[in-house]
Nucleic acid binder design. Sequence first.
DNA 1: GCCAACGTTGGC
DNA 2: GCCAACGTTGGC
Length: 156
Amino acid sequence: MNYWLIKSEPEMCSYADLEQSPKQTTYWDGVRNYQARNTLRDLMKKGDRCFFYHSNAEPSGIAGICEVVKEGYPDWTAFEKGHEHFDEKSDPDNPTWFMVDVKAVRPMPRLITLAELKSVKGLEKMVLLQKGSRLSVQPVTAKEWAIVCKHAGVAP
DNA sequence: GCCAACGTTGGC
DNA sequence: GCCAACGTTGGC
């Protein structure tokens, strides 16, 4: 099983919003970065676990854990004229962008803030904490996953 | 709102 | 292929 961290602006879709979605599941769309696209399309597998991270938030941090329930498929929001994520260059017959479906697993007992994560031993190499890291889907090592869960007091 | 870091675009 | 200009992300 692989571990990931996915970012979402809580104004758009918070962890609570995910929990309140039908079947606690939603599609995670709007990624318009090639590296992140490759991860979504090729690497994320059913059953993989993800930290659900609130970005651009007050404060930012990990809000919960979710699970990949549908592997990479074309991000149809790129095909819809007028949609916020419309991209005229993405051809439905040869899509540029992909997305996955994720399902809520469990919330963190409290938000694990970015500032807090920076001070946790063993997370120094975590992609999220690297300077200038802007990737909206990033790999998390099994070790980092365990450390964060232990720190937060939740089952991995 | 500011700004650093990064990705993309496009002229050459 | 280089690189300046521009747009976006996201912490603060």
